[in-house]
Design a protein around this nucleic acid. Structure first.
Lengths: 268, 268
DNA sequence: TGTACATCAGTGAACGCGCGTTCACTGATGTAC
DNA sequence: TGTACATCAGTGAACGCGCGTTCACTGATGTAC
């Protein structure tokens, strides 16, 4: 009887979800690493030992929460970028950045769980990797699109500092194309001559390209990695209070930086 | 008798240091937030209640450790940059970045303590602020020097994308001046026309400039903030394992990124 | 220089708490015939 | 359709542990006269 089997199984699945939800609530309330099985059980009106029917240990609960957090963030990033026309590279970049930030602000402790300092004594198992890379995959995808678009079009290679019209016209954050190196020198990814990357980095970039952004030049990959670390660094600083006293209400700074980094990477 | 007074006081100071040292050791061993007064006392062969003669509570010990960590890092940054000629802006930037990273790698848990996810239930008191800003002050100082140097010299304002000779000649990391926006469009900070920053950001930049880099243009300040968040984001990613699978042995990536961000900010 | 007193460092026991995990158990839910 | 059995969910008590903090205390170190 498949129906009755799934009846029990459905109850199990539901309670599993409820446990994770309670754990998530506790995470949000009491902070990143004070998560305790007993408190979760208490909130659900169960006895603590009952949780062991669902998660063999506290660390397994943690792992489940980590995977869920990565998945929630990754899914949002995927949806936000998929909602835009594929050719709107900069829009997709902006959307991805914005969605990462807003998710982080809405779920600070879950963000801290995955992007903050690692939990002492806890080693994330390999099963987290696919979920953990979803945002990176999104970024790699749009980078690859930018790359193939620019290598296909003949618009590249303008040597002047005026920049491609599209880039400037697209910028809606007024000061986005400020005083310092704008996108002028870089008519987009895939442009002509470039100094080759030095060895350890070249190979790393190649592997990243192969995994995430096939066909993209190593230097562009590395620039994207720089932008990637900037994005999360900025969000972490905002969330962890490091921006207090400088760019504290960080909305304006954030969108400015996002556009700056788009220029930096050479996105159209 | 001042001598005997200081005898007791010196003993007190020394034990205070030893307590902090033991706490730091425990931090490094057992991880960021599992620091316990009892364990520290145990390591020192004391009874746990004795620590209350030195720190009124666990949180005060934590605060002391945080301040010490910020100070250790800040002092290194100050020394590393002070050791170079003042005009060597890019060298100072590189030195500061390098020293922050190497300190972080050498003291991962102390780094996590100050730049990782905040300790749940712990609110850093205001006394930490001066120590916390030392690295930013160093960066602001070199930015201000870059700014005044470039506004003083007549080399600025070249509209071409060839860049100032000094900038290119200075770059020793081969691919540092790669394909995308090099310093070409930005002959240095302080260059002519620039779109004004939008409002909330303009004021924030002004405050930062007033506090840390007097006289520097708002857009340059904001770019420096971007570079600043990139620096710490990159280090955190390396330390927290987020770079595994991409730029994992991160030395090459790090120095590449540092030079890229120097270009981005417009440092000579 | 010597004595009486005050200050301070460190002790040891205790309070009250929370934690992860184990284990034998009771019922309920499902399965096979 | 009904019965005998197996599987599973949840219970309650217990183990052994660690924690921060308080408190009355003993000596040692310093101070004033």
């Amino acid at each position: 009887m498949t129906a009755s089997q799934t009846a029990r199984e459905r109850a199990r699945a539901e309670l599993t979800r409820e446990i994770k939800a309670a754990a998530r609530r506790q995470l949000a309330a009491t902070g990143a690493q004070r998560l305790s099985l007993r408190a979760v059980a208490r909130e659900l009106g169960m006895v603590s030992s009952a949780l062991y029917r669902y998660f063999p240990s506290r660390d397994d609960l943690l792992t489940a929460l980590i995977i869920d957090a990565y998945d929630a963030l990754g899914e949002r990033a995927e949806q936000a970028t998929a909602a835009l026309p594929r050719a709107d590279i900069r829009g997709r970049w902006r959307a991805c950045c914005a969605v990462v930030r807003s998710w982080a602000l809405a779920h600070p402790h879950e963000y801290a769980l995955i992007y903050g300092s690692p939990v002492p004594g806890y080693q994330a198992p390999r099963e987290t990797i696919p979920s953990a890379s979803r945002v990176a995959v999104v970024l790699g995808g749009l980078l690859a699109d930018a790359w193939t678009a620019s290598t296909a079009s003949p618009t590249t290679g303008a040597g002047t500092s005026t920049g491609t019209p599209a880039t400037n016209a697209d910028a809606d954050a007024g000061p986005g194309t400020g005083p310092a190196p704008g996108p002028g020198t870089s008519p987009g990814p895939g442009t002509g001559t470039q100094a080759p990357l030095q060895e350890p980095l070249r190979r790393q970039a190649e592997l990243v390209a192969a995994a995430i952004a096939p066909g993209v030049d190593g230097a562009a990959i590395v620039r994207a990695l720089v932008a990637w670390t900037q994005l999360f660094g900025m969000i972490s600083f905002e969330l962890f209070g490091q921006l207090a006293g400088s760019a504290d209400p960080a909305d304006a700074f954030f969108s400015y930086a996002v556009d700056q980094m788009a220029d930096f990477v050479g996105l159209p």
